[in-house]
């Protein structure tokens, strides 16, 4: 096993076939990266959305608690925690 080309520029040119070979490898690389990146991005977006919702729920329960403390007669708002399945 040995390096088949005289220089790096030789490797890039591939005796005239360079554009074809490198284009094929480039398109493959982009496609494979697309396959990896899309599920990762989707996972991150989903978790971020869930966190946002949790923060909102927490703020809502805080508010209703404060409201309940200030006015004992007020009925506590029903919990809208999505964790309750």
């Amino acid at each position: 096993m040995q390096f088949q080309f005289d220089s790096v520029s030789d490797l890039l040119a591939m005796a005239g076939h360079g554009p074809y070979v490198w284009a094929a490898y480039g398109i493959t690389l982009v496609s494979l990266l697309y396959l990896v990146v899309t599920p990762l991005r989707r996972r991150r977006a989903l978790l971020a959305a869930l966190r946002r919702q949790q923060r909102m729920n927490r703020a809502e329960t805080e508010l209703s608690k404060q409201g309940a403390a200030a006015d004992p007669a007020a009925t506590p708002s029903p919990s809208r925690d999505p964790r309750v399945n």
């Binding site: 396959l35 599920p39 989707r42 996972r43 989903l46 978790l47 949790q54």
Partner: peptide
């Protein structure tokens, strides 16, 4: 690798209302 990645994010999406996914997000 990619099949597992996609299936895992699919699992999270479908189970997003459950406690364990909520905990995971927290």
């Amino acid at each position: 690798l990619v099949l597992l990645l996609r299936t895992r994010s699919e699992v999270l999406e479908r189970e997003k209302k459950t406690r364990w996914v909520q905990d995971l997000a927290r």
